[in-house]
């Protein structure tokens, strides 16, 4: 097992390297002077020259990449043009709201989606199944920000059940913290729920057609343990895979959700950076989010052995 994890960790290196090359080339191959882009719109020619020297832009491209990568590996993601602070510090300052939002969303989405998917598979072909699958298509189609504003309008402005926008740190208590995360989590999680519910249904349908499920039923196993212990556990591998892949959906959604709900997280940092053309922040956040995505999917791979002991490494 340890050897397997080590092997998989090593296998993520080429992927991350490709990400790094892409992010690096993005800045250097797009038309225009990268130093001028990095210096921002209001920079003097002295500042541009200083950045040019700092980045070693007169050096050959591969050496620039080497230097950039070397700094990257020491945790140096560059400095924000607007804040004048290291990008890594800015991201870490804003990490709590984003991590909170992501975790509450994943938790609520997985619980709801797997229940819906199991229900739909168990009731396959009935009205319940069709309603759930219809909801899933709808969930894919309504964009995060539209759901967000509808939720704010109905539950925060009209019914006044929850605060409108913003974020309360966890340090001020679980209640207030959760209260402000309810609506953003629903908005962000809708497409994710749809995705997971669909794969759960498909995977369960396949397992429910297996002989051993019929045997279990013939032996008189009650419906609930039959569905959860016999079927769901064996249907888990594709579901967990999609939970991992779907994190890409969440990352894109986090950026939009934080804007809709005014949550001061990493997503807001990126959006504010667009208007200011604060390129180092955008670059650094792409790298961090991509690394998170790769790591989550690594964890998913490792979790396979837990759900299916036949998979050994």
């Amino acid at each position: 097992m340890g050897a397997y994890i080590a092997r998989r960790l090593i296998a993520t290196i080429p992927v991350m390297l490709v990400v790094a090359v892409c992010v690096f080339l993005l800045l250097h191959l797009t038309p225009g002077d990268p130093a001028a882009v990095l210096a921002g719109d209001n920079a003097t020619s002295d500042q541009v020259a200083q950045i040019r020297a700092q980045l070693g832009l007169d050096e050959p491209l591969w050496r620039q990449f080497g230097m950039w990568l070397w700094r990257l590996m020491q945790g140096d993601l560059g400095e924000s043009l607007f804040w004048g602070k290291p990008v890594l510090d800015l991201v870490l300052e804003r990490a709590e709201p984003t991590i909170s939002l992501a975790l509450t969303t994943i938790t609520f989405a997985v619980i709801i989606a797997v229940s819906l998917g199991v229900l739909a598979a168990w009731q396959a072909g009935t009205l319940v199944d069709r309603l759930i699958m219809g909801f899933a298509v709808l969930g894919f189609s309504v964009p995060v920000f539209v759901v967000g504003y509808v939720l704010i309008f109905v539950f925060a402005i009209n019914l006044r059940w929850v605060p409108v926008q913003g974020y309360t740190p966890l340090a001020e208590g679980v209640g207030p913290w959760l209260e402000r995360l309810v609506l953003p989590s629903i908005a962000l999680g809708l497409a994710y729920v749809a995705l997971i519910a669909r794969i759960t249904r498909a995977s369960m349908l396949e397992v429910l057609a297996e002989d051993y499920v019929r045997t279990a039923q013939a032996k008189g196993v009650a419906t609930r343990p039959m569905l959860t212990r016999h079927a769901l556990k064996n249907a888990a591998v594709p579901i967990v895979t999609v939970v991992g892949i779907g994190v890409a959906l969440l990352i894109g959604g986090v950026v939009i959700t934080e804007t809709v709900f005014n949550i001061p997280g990493v997503g807001r940092l990126v959006v504010d950076a667009i208007q200011r053309r604060d390129y180092p922040i955008i670059q650094g956040c792409i790298l961090i989010f991509s690394a998170v995505y790769v790591l989550v999917n690594l964890l998913v791979d490792i979790s396979y052995t837990f759900f299916d002991p036949r998979i050994r490494y």
Binding site: P14, V15, M16, L17, V18, V19, V21, C22, V23, L26, L27, T30, P31, G32, V37, A248, I251, G252, V255, I256, V270, A273, I274, R277, Y279, I282, Q283, C285, I286, F289, S290, Y293, V294
Partner: peptide
Amino acid sequence: MRLMDGLMSIPSILLAIALVALT
């Protein structure tokens, strides 16, 4: 395929944001 794996791990909205912000 390694190239595609790498490209797929970059969240698409962020990649598009970077391209638009740059140009």
